[in-house]
Every structure is written in C-alpha cells, then in structure tokens.
C-alpha cells in the first residue's frame, strides 16, 4: 500500500472521474445557461431572463421550496417519535424499526410512488376507509393535491430523516437520561435539554437530505401532484426534452440547485450554531 505522502494517489482515480463526469458537465450547464442556443455560439442573458423574469417560473420555485420544507416538517414530526421509541425499545422492536426504515429505501421510488396512487385514488385505501366509516359520503380528491403529495413524500423520504436520527440518538449515553430523571427532570425537560441537543446533528443531516430529495423528486411530483401543481424539476425536463430550450432549462436547473444549496448551507450553519451554543 502507498504510505505517507503517496497516499493522495489512491484518491486520484475517483477525483479524476468526478472532475470529468461530474464537475465538467456542471460547468457546461453553467455555460449553457449564458448561451443563446444549445450550440454555445452566442452568449447572452436570455435564458436567465426567461427563467427569473416570469411570474409562473417564480411561483414554481416557491412551490418547490414550500414542498421541500413541508416534507421536512412532516418527516421530522413522525421520525423523531419513531427514533425515541427505537431508543427506548428492546432489541426485537429495535430491529423491526430499523428494518422498516431501510426497506422503503431499497424499494424503487417508482414503486413507492405507485403505492400512493393506490392509496390516494378515488377508489383507494383512504377513500374506501373513510366512506366505510361514514366520515365522508363521496370520495375526496387526494391525488393531484398538495396534501396528497406531501403525505406520499413523507413516506418516500422518511428513511432519509430516520436513519441519521437513529445514528445520532445511538450516541446518547443511557446514564445521562437516568441522571436527568433522578435529578427530578420531567420527561419533557429531559427530552428538551438532553435528547434534543444530541439529536440535532441527525435532525439537520436528515432535513438536508429530505429537502434535497423532495424538491427534486420528479416522478412523485408529476404522477401524484399531477399537472395542476407546478414544480421546478418538471419545468426543467419540459424545457430540455420537449421544448428543447436548453439555455432556459439550464438556468432553471441552476435555480433549483442554488435553492437547494442555500437551504443546505443555512441548515449546516444552524447545525454549527447549535453545537457551539
């Protein structure tokens, strides 16, 4: 094995592959957004003007960010209790929760999206249950609504929130919890003062992954959200593959990327603030 100063050579193949197949394409994407056509013969701001000067596109940016944020909140609301139960549970229940967290991650996004068509449809699980229980008298529309899409994305993205949380909570020393309880701390106080700060890195890592994934979930957004809700990934795809306006597609893709990176940056800043607080 290479030792000492020669070590960097082992990292070279991956670095070169990434430079060629990841960084170079992204630089070309940036260049294309400043071109007037896909052949990069002339330069101009037409792509960016079309992307950011259009109320419909701005609304789509906002819709996409909102979708990402609401999915983060929904996954956190369910994943934090699930992680707490995992922490307090015995080995069997722990294993079951861990498997439940990993299994959806291994079943294709297409399969998970399809499941929600069956669940949210007019004759689907939710409508059948509510009709049967007499809560509603006619099927309610859940497909092609934002609620339905967020509910579906909550399952589709939950493993990305749950796994980092489980990892973070696994580092808590049980003695710490006992100490807090025996010092007279109520459960709420123990959770707030002891568990939450320890869970924070996992929560922030999870929020970053869920936000990035939910805001770029092209198939789920399109199939469950449908044509009435407009999100950036569908616009990027239409402009690139149907309209063939590559400068506009590039500018929209970069807008999506910048929005996600800004949120990821803000979350990581929050993370370091919490650590030093």
């Amino acid at each position: 094995m290479a030792t000492g100063n020669g070590l960097w050579r082992l990292a070279l193949p991956l670095a070169l592959a990434q430079a060629l197949f990841f960084v170079a394409p992204l630089l070309l994407l940036l260049a294309t957004s400043f071109a007037t056509d896909e052949n990069l013969r002339d330069w101009g701001l037409r792509g960016w003007r079309d992307a950011l000067g259009d109320a419909f596109h701005i609304q789509s940016v906002l819709n996409t960010m909102r979708l990402g944020a609401l999915t983060v909140l929904a996954t956190a609301l369910l994943a934090v209790p699930l992680a707490l139960v995992h922490m307090a549970a015995g080995p069997t229940l722990r294993r079951i929760i861990l498997m439940a967290a990993v299994l959806p991650l291994l079943t294709s996004v297409v399969v998970r999206t399809f499941a929600w068509i069956v669940i949210l449809g007019r004759e689907g699980v939710i409508n059948a249950t509510l009709l049967g229980a007499g809560v509603i008298t006619a099927p309610v529309a859940l497909l092609q609504t934002e609620h339905g899409l967020i509910l579906a994305l909550t399952q589709i993205e939950m493993p990305l929130m749950l796994l980092p949380l489980l990892a973070a909570l696994a580092r808590i020393d049980p003695a710490l919890l006992d100490a807090s309880a025996s010092l007279g701390g109520s459960l709420a106080r123990t959770l707030w003062k002891v568990v939450l700060p320890m869970a924070m890195p996992g929560l922030i890592a999870g929020a970053t992954l869920v936000f990035a994934s939910a805001s770029t979930a092209f198939i789920s957004q399109g199939v469950i959200g449908g044509g009435r809700l407009n999100y950036l990934p569908a616009l990027v795809w239409q402009q690139a593959m149907v309209v063939f306006d590559w400068p506009l597609a590039a500018a929209l893709a970069l807008t999506l990327m910048a929005s996600v990176l800004m949120v990821a940056g803000a979350l990581s800043l929050l993370g370091s603030r919490v650590r030093h607080a």
Partner: peptide, 25 residues
C-alpha cells in the same frame, strides 16, 4: 476531498442529469 466526493448526494439529481446530457451531446 471527502466533502467534494460527497457533493453528489446533496446536489439535485435533475440538474446533474441535464448537465450530463448536455456534456455528452
């Protein structure tokens, strides 16, 4: 390098997919 190598996890896949299409064409 580790930070750089992990970057593809956070970047929106749609943006990279389009970039790859543009690059190869």
């Amino acid at each position: 390098a580790e930070g750089g190598f992990m970057a593809p996890l956070v970047l929106p896949g749609i943006a990279f997919g389009l970039a790859a299409l543009m690059f190869f064409s």
